[in-house]
Design a protein around this nucleic acid. Sequence first.
DNA 1: CTGTTAGCGCATTCAT
DNA 2: ATGAATGCGCTAACAG
Lengths: 344, 344
Amino acid sequence: MAVSIHDVAKRAGVSISTVSRILNNSANVNEKKAEAVREAMEYYHYEPNQFGRGLVKQKSNMIGVYFPSQYDSIFESTYNLELLKGIERVLPYQNYSMVLINETAEYEHRRQVQPRYLEFIQQKKIDGLIMSAAGDAFMRGEVFSKLLEEGYPLVYIGKRFHQNGMNVYAQFEKYHMQMLRELYVRGHRRVLMIEGEYHKIYMDHIVSAMRTELPELEVRILLLENIDFRRHLLKAVAYYIGEDGCTAVCSPTIETTRVLLGICAQLSYPIPERVSVISVEHRQGDGALEYPAVSAFFVPVIDMGSGAADMLLQAIRGEKTEGDSVEYETKLIERNSVNSLQTV
Amino acid sequence: MAVSIHDVAKRAGVSISTVSRILNNSANVNEKKAEAVREAMEYYHYEPNQFGRGLVKQKSNMIGVYFPSQYDSIFESTYNLELLKGIERVLPYQNYSMVLINETAEYEHRRQVQPRYLEFIQQKKIDGLIMSAAGDAFMRGEVFSKLLEEGYPLVYIGKRFHQNGMNVYAQFEKYHMQMLRELYVRGHRRVLMIEGEYHKIYMDHIVSAMRTELPELEVRILLLENIDFRRHLLKAVAYYIGEDGCTAVCSPTIETTRVLLGICAQLSYPIPERVSVISVEHRQGDGALEYPAVSAFFVPVIDMGSGAADMLLQAIRGEKTEGDSVEYETKLIERNSVNSLQTV
DNA sequence: CTGTTAGCGCATTCAT
DNA sequence: ATGAATGCGCTAACAG
């Protein structure tokens, strides 16, 4: 058995309470004894057992990060990594760490109804939860709403939809509309907007809002599926650019943009002369690595991760913020992949 | 306070031992009582508290995944994600989950000497450890070797270097040499090989081994740094292809390859006519998404992740395998980015 | 300032 | 087959 608080106490010639006091800075201790205790801890390389500690405090100092399965998509990889980086940037300083909770399709099948994070919460494996996307939650309304109403420490990434809980949000709809406006002022009147299948629910609103705001602008929506998506995209580009007369494409991630650029090269559609391209980038600078460099709306996902983690830790410490919400601004970084057209 | 085993026992009219027996399938229980217990568990949505359980068993059912800081590199992103996916594919079925342990530079600075995973081990927060790369471990020999000698359940990704512990390995040196041979048989005699700075230590051996095997082949090594790497690579390509007479480039990741392709387009070096490109891909099919599609050695990182997790769980269950080692084969996927030259 | 003690939730041993 | 009792390692309340 590993060394326990008793061993340390014995070697230092004090009681276990004194050792505990030093571990937790919970009371003043005679400096001489404190020194002896520190020596003993050093000697044994003592680290307090988390189970003993947790049994009293019911805190694991872990937070869960939940990824619904539909986001296990190649389109989302930079997004996910940046999110994890942002979270990880905050946690260690508060002595927290991160458990990945990944809803996999197969596993999901074996379970009945509960999303996997619930078990972690009930077993006290985590002290709080970051949901990488709120979309899944809607589908499991009962469970998630119950958590929110109980005031469980919880931050979700996405549009606010409940008075409880906390969220960070990059205003998906807003920057998509900005992309379209940007193209509009450059003279584009028919554009193709690509999105992941799972963002479908937002697109209707975007399209109808833009129809009102800019009646002359025609927006084509392409919902990209995961499988064989290059071929899918190739056909779409050949049609919308080659036949339908679109002059610009909005791409939802740099991953998609890369493939799009290759397709444009393959079809001999020069950028930006024949096709204007505007992308979203989740990691700053990604668009500059492409050739040609791509203008992009930068979504500060890494900051969103840090922000989410910050809020969560505050809530766990009981420092208010139930109901907090932070919206992040996106920033257009121009890199000349958008052409200015003559308007007739 | 949440519901405990006592509540369940009371409602079912049995003792806590009986409830515990059912939880753990540790003994036969009268079916009638068992039914009552199950009903009570349902009723309360009871989940056993991990601290109580852990205090007895000293098991957390978590495994740590450790990323040394030097690998926090944009070059490695697909690699890391695939590794995580592979691990996550295995763990839930055995009721394990994954804690990310990320050595961040800043945090490292604040700590004294210990790598961060050690604390997790000592506090029993994890039952085993997967090291995403062994490179870092060499630098911290004392700590890591001690773990290995103690027989701590541990799998590292990388070349075997100790009789204890377990590892999975993709034979880095071997497939790099195969890349060079591939180019050689196609008539290339002067090639540029790109690598990450942190792989430097392996390159000398590769170069000298190839010098012996294929004296006519000249290999240029470019160690790519993280900062401003596109400009760095652009200059290098302009020089090695434009002036030095290299006819082919080996790229260590698809991330690098993408930028390389853009650079070749920018410099008007057609692929494969002017420049042959051969890459490593860590996710199957990535090379086919580029334009032009890129021939690549596929390294099955996702399988390596699953394999590592499998071995680790076996070791934790005590089912042997101390000292196990699995080598993964890479596979060349041809996509016509390599030109065949006339040899003179 | 410090030692003694109760108790956190559970698995397990020992009686029965 | 089952209940009572023990102890895992620790924190915190209490007594001194």
